[in-house]
Amino acid sequence: MSGGVGWLVSLAGAGLVVAVLRDVFRTLWQPSGRGEVSRWLTAGLWRLAGRADGRLAAVTGPLALALVAALWTMAIILGWALIYWPHLPSGFSYGASLNTAERAGFLDAVYLSAVTVATLGFGDIVPADGWLRIAAPLEAVLGFTLLTAVVSWISQVYPALTRRRTLALRLALLRRAEPPADRLDPVTTAGLLTSLAADVIQVRVDLTQHAETYYFHDGHDDTSLAAMAGYAADLALQGQTSSRAEVRTAAAMLGRALDDLAVVLNRQFLRLKNDQAVAVLHAYAVDHDRGSRPAGN
């Protein structure tokens, strides 16, 4: 490979690495952003699960996380392989058992990139040129950073799912108890509605920061916020007819929190022309109705 073409190939590899790092940053560290790869994969798998009558719904979220992490890793390996390839074999030193002339192909560059990003460092092929002696350790650092970032990502996703499912279960138990509104102490009612509003706000923040959690199917109605959101809206409406000011205020807070949640759901996932909260929450329930019937409205 001629010098000019070789450097173009290396630049293409560097561009691929930069694109992957940008997507990782947008997905994991940008508070209100989401990378293109994770958005495309998770939304695509969710649509596929819907066409398969919901049979894939239970694994859509975990499978999407695994595929995104695998795609990031493979792209990093491929990008760095393109950086190394034009400089094989002249830019590297080879072990005594290796035939240098036979170790200058693209597969050898992929092998070198893979063992470097995995920080294995077998030592049979090592960089000799000065800039390559900097590039190879940098790839190892990126590989370790990517592994750490993915583990951190997963550790943040599941607590968000737990908070969402806990709110749904609270609503389900409250609906099952059916407390008479006229017999409840106003302070107790106001406190309950305020607490529910705070939980809804937390779910809204979780969806903004971890958009991929939308595509985790919660299964049973009692732990599905999509199924129970309609009941939360009913509670807000009932509370706003109370004769006590503290109850009306708390109910209004719950209603506003649900409106805000509906805005996020519609803007990031559903994209309905009718952006009224009732319509959005109903569409949310329908979109997650994969084997279980929505509750609420």
Results as ranks from 00 to 15, higher is better:
residue 4 G to M: 13
residue 291 G to S: 02
residue 63 L to R: 08
residue 155 S to W: 02
residue 261 L to D: 02
residue 279 A to L: 01
residue 227 A to G: 09
residue 84 Y to D: 08
residue 109 A to Y: 08
residue 280 V to C: 00
residue 269 F to D: 02
residue 184 L to I: 06
residue 55 R to Y: 06
residue 43 A to V: 02
residue 100 T to M: 11
residue 28 L to A: 10
residue 111 Y to D: 09
residue 170 R to I: 02
residue 3 G to N: 10
residue 24 V to M: 15
residue 101 A to Q: 12
residue 250 A to G: 07
residue 294 P to Y: 04
residue 255 G to H: 04
residue 235 L to S: 02
residue 74 M to N: 08
residue 59 V to S: 11
residue 7 W to G: 06
residue 287 D to G: 10
residue 227 A to V: 01
residue 170 R to D: 12
residue 131 W to I: 07
residue 264 V to R: 09
residue 176 R to P: 00
residue 279 A to I: 02
residue 28 L to I: 05
residue 221 D to G: 05
residue 5 V to K: 07
residue 80 W to H: 15
residue 218 D to P: 05
residue 45 L to R: 09
residue 165 R to Q: 13
residue 182 D to R: 10
residue 243 S to I: 05
residue 126 V to S: 13
residue 97 S to F: 13
residue 69 A to D: 14
residue 170 R to E: 14
residue 161 L to R: 12
residue 54 G to P: 01
residue 88 L to R: 05
residue 37 V to Y: 05
residue 10 S to A: 15
residue 175 R to S: 07
residue 95 G to K: 10
residue 18 V to E: 07
residue 212 E to V: 15
residue 192 L to R: 11
residue 278 V to A: 13
residue 91 G to C: 07
residue 70 A to H: 10
residue 107 L to I: 08
residue 44 G to F: 03
residue 15 G to A: 10
residue 196 L to A: 04
residue 166 T to R: 09
residue 90 S to P: 00
residue 105 G to T: 13
residue 30 Q to F: 08
residue 295 A to N: 06
residue 179 P to H: 07
residue 155 S to H: 04
